[in-house]
Computed example of a mutant assay.
Amino acid sequence: MSIWGPGSFENDDALDWMAELADSDDDNPIIDALNTVIDQADESPEAPDCAVALAAVEVVAAWMGEPTEDCPEEVEVWVEGRPAPPATMISQARYVAEAISEKSELKKLWKNSDDFELWQTSVNDLLGRLLY
C-alpha cells in the first residue's frame, strides 16, 4: 500500500530515503537529495526528487534543533549528538524548499488535490523552522 500525505514524511519516496539516511554515518544522503533539486531548479523539479528533498530539508531543520512535531524517531536518532549543520547546507535547504514551493512537479500534483493548502502550510512551516 502506498503512503501519500501532505507532510514531508508522509510518502513512500521520503520513507525509502530515510532508510538510506539511517544507514549512513555521514550527511551525503542529505547533500545528494538537496543537489538533485538544485540541479533541476531552473526547470520544474520532479515530484519524487522533491519528496526526498523535503525530507532532507526536514532533517536539516531537526539537526538545527527545529524538528517538526511528527519528526520520525530515525531522524531524531540520526541528528542526536551531531554538531550543527554547516551554514551552506542550511542555505541550500532553504533554497530547495522555496524552489519546491514555487515551481515543481510536486506542487502541481498537490495543486490538483483537495489537500493543497495542507501541503503548502507544511512547506511554509518547514521554511519558518529553517531561519538561522
Rank of each mutant, 00 (worst) to 15 (best):
D26W: 12
V57K: 00
V57L: 02
E46G: 10
T36V: 04
A47E: 13
I31M: 02
V37M: 08
N28I: 14
W63E: 00
L54Q: 03
E43N: 13
D42W: 12
P48M: 06
A33M: 03
E46A: 12
D49L: 04
P67F: 08
G65M: 05
D39I: 09
V52L: 01
L54V: 09
V57C: 03
E58S: 14
E43G: 14
G65E: 02
P29C: 04
D27K: 09
A53D: 07
Q40P: 02
E58F: 00
V59I: 03
V52H: 05
T36K: 15
E58A: 12
I38K: 06
E43I: 11
V52N: 04
M64C: 10
D26T: 13
D26F: 11
A41T: 11
A47F: 10
A51L: 10
T36S: 15
D25G: 15
E46D: 15
L54D: 02
P67N: 09
D39F: 10
D27F: 14
A62P: 01
M64W: 05
V60M: 05
D49E: 15
D26M: 10
P48K: 08
V59A: 04
E43M: 07
A62M: 02
I38W: 01
A33T: 03
S24F: 13
A61F: 05
P67Q: 09
V52F: 07
D42V: 11
L54W: 04
L34R: 02
P29I: 00
A55P: 07
D25I: 15
N35D: 14
I31H: 01
A61R: 05
D39E: 13
A51P: 00
L34E: 04
V57F: 01
E66S: 13
P45Q: 08
D27L: 14
A41Y: 10
A53E: 05
A55M: 03
P67L: 06
A55T: 07
T36D: 15
A62E: 02
P45A: 09
D25K: 15
I31G: 00
A62L: 03
C50T: 07
T36G: 12
G65I: 10
E58L: 00
N28P: 01
A53M: 08
V60Q: 05
P29L: 00
T36C: 12
V57M: 00
I30F: 06
V37T: 06
P48I: 13
T36A: 15
A47D: 14
I30Q: 03
I31N: 00
L54E: 01
G65F: 07
I38C: 05
A41I: 14
A56Q: 00
N28F: 12
D32Y: 06
S24N: 12
V52K: 11
I38H: 03
D27T: 11
V59C: 09
P67K: 08
D32R: 10
A33K: 03
V52G: 06
A53T: 09
D49C: 10
V59S: 01
A56I: 01
V37D: 04
L34C: 01
P48Q: 07
W63M: 01
E58M: 01
D26Q: 09
I30L: 13
S24G: 14
E66C: 12
V52D: 04
A55W: 05
